[in-house]
Design a protein around this nucleic acid. Structure first.
Lengths: 346, 346
DNA sequence: GGAATAAGTGTTATCGCAAACACTCGGGAA
DNA sequence: TTCCCGAGTGTTTGCGATAACACTTATTCC
């Protein structure tokens, strides 16, 4: 293969093929090449074949920057997220990327170091200055709800698990329903009431789970003990579990996520309490390891994959100017394993 | 705020401010605006202030597509990765993003559905057609090593945890050393030999851990039992653990990751074996939950954050034309907790 | 005093692509 | 025959930024 003719005499650059090179090789104009790529039906089949062959031969790939400049569309989706080291956000991100890819979009990410108005706005800013076509925000914190009111109004934005009062569409797992389901399950096993080990304050899913749990207890007229707030980590579950183990009316606990449940399980065991014989535990998330906890954890499964897929669909609609649903809820599912059993006698 | 003057009489578009608008408002040329943004010291302070004020007033943000087109640099780094749902890859990605951000880079991701030559080349292709300045590949699989030989040779690429024979720099945790350390730890507790529950074939870190484990046993002249290969999941650890529990000379096991160790722990317990009294277990990774396993897991910590940081530094160097180290190793660390104890008598 | 120099700013060309419009055919209708 | 039409293709222009260079002024030095 010979080197393509070049204009300036820049001596070194290996020079990647551009549309003009393809055109020349195929004996057509650049415009025709462009058409072959973007509207093939407008080009006679034999011309198209020649162009395609030239594209192949030169290994030509369109320069997206140039295309963005002229079309105003980048085919890039931005995702703003908070701690993608965690199972939930990581899975959501993964599902978004997957959905995006299937629709010829690619994904650019912006992680946040902190959750506050400033940091969120800045994250979105980093993405928009890269000309993303839309943004999905995965930051289920109240500061997000807040920070998001001040975004460029014409930017297609969708939030995952955001609270009420956000001025754009939201996809969320129905945390309230999930928590209620978990709580009812425990009550149905005969427990008089259910304690709650919650997530940190100001996280919208933490609050929703507290609310769901509380609503069931209140509806059933059960005593509502003050929830203990952890920080989602196993460590905090363990710490709080030691406190909880001291309570003498403790027979059932609903824990706001599986990691904390794990720490709790260990604290209970250390306190000489057996699960589920003495104390029943229900978690939330259904991380892949939950089935291998000791005992296997009864928990509430969140379908992050669906959440991601729907979120992508929603931004895509907005990008295309379709104004669909404003709030999509995904139903969580109770997965019964062995960590919750009937109330011990006495 | 008044609407900025516009040129054509396009009636509807909200029209975002461009450099020309800023220039006009500040009473200078566009070039001066550009200079204020890219080489402020070349502009007189009072002019600079006027321009900055105009930028502020119009909420101007440079259009990166235009800049890319002319400079050939995008400030975007591509990351190709396999299963970012897992703790390791997720942490690495997170660290990369963080390092990138601190250096004014942003990150675009390409997840892979499969690990083979084609899929990797395609992932890299998706990124390059977006004009990324460089690519980091986080896919510790042998197919990667393979697929990577056929990349555009001028693209700055760095791999994380790739095997030998890759034609570009690699950052890796010294898996061999980590496995050796774990194995030696078990031997030092008096165990006659150490079994190994390995990761899946063709994963470079799985192979390296097998090699490290084997080398210690051989050096010490111990019996080498055939390793059992899992798939990194707790489920496979559990399954293989049931088989392992039948072996009567089983007193020590080195497991290739913490999730499998978790499943194994459960299988051993189900078989009536106590850990560490009857059987000692050492894992790999030190996921945040490892300290809350039952019993707390002795394991080998991988510093993913450092790996991510170094990988970024390496691509950055390559982008800037600096040819530094070709192979950077990060030392793992043995974290002793309670799952490994002295060999039971008899 | 005059040339050389430097600092600050403007002009023009260009990056690679696609939108808009112009052109060239051949075939059918009038 | 003449005209028109539409399919297929080419030409020109402009997206928004920066590189390269040109042009003003003031400043310095002999």
């Amino acid at each position: 293969m010979t080197t393509p003719p070049h204009r300036g005499d820049a001596p070194h650059r290996p020079k990647v093929a551009v549309m003009e090179d393809v055109a020349e090789l195929a004996g057509v104009s650049a415009m025709t090449v462009s058409r072959v790529l973007n509207a093939p039906e407008k080009v006679r089949p034999e011309t198209r074949a020649r162009v395609l062959a030239a594209v192949q031969e030169l290994g030509y790939r369109p320069n997206s920057a140039a295309r963005v400049l002229v079309t105003g569309r980048s085919g890039v989706l931005g995702v703003v997220s908070f701690d993608t080291t965690q199972y939930g956000p990581a899975s959501t991100l993964y599902a978004i990327e997957r959905a995006a890819r299937q629709n010829e979009y690619s994904v650019s990410i912006a992680s946040l170091d902190a959750l506050n108005r400033r940091s969120i706005a800045e994250g979105v800013g980093r993405l928009t200055s890269q000309s993303v076509d839309g943004v999905i925000i995965v930051a289920p914190h109240e500061s997000a709800t807040d920070g998001l009111r001040h975004l460029p109004p014409d930017l297609p934005v969708v939030a995952v698990d955001a609270g009420d009062g956000v001025p754009f569409p939201v996809v969320m797992v129905d945390q309230h329903a999930g928590a209620a389901r978990a709580t009812r399950h425990l009550l149905s096993l005969g427990h008089r009431t259910v304690w709650h080990l919650s997530g940190p304050a100001n996280w919208v899913d933490a609050s929703a789970r507290v609310a769901g749990w509380r609503s069931v207890l209140e509806a059933e007229g059960r005593e509502v003990r003050e929830p203990l707030a952890g920080d989602w980590s196993a460590r905090s579950g363990h710490e709080l579990g030691r406190r909880l183990a001291l309570e003498d009316d403790l027979t059932a606990i609903f824990v706001a996520n599986d990691q904390m449940a794990m720490g709790l399980l260990r604290a209970l065991r250390e306190a000489g309490l057996r699960v589920p014989e003495d104390v029943s535990v229900v978690g939330f998330d259904d991380i892949p390891e939950a089935a291998y906890f000791w005992p296997p954890l009864t928990t509430v499964r969140q379908d992050f994959a669906t959440v991601g897929r729907l979120a992508f669909q929603l931004v895509l609609d907005r990008i295309d100017g379709v104004l669909g649903e404003r709030r999509l809820k995904v139903e969580p599912e109770l997965v019964v394993r062995e960590s919750a059993g009937v109330r011990p006698p006495g």
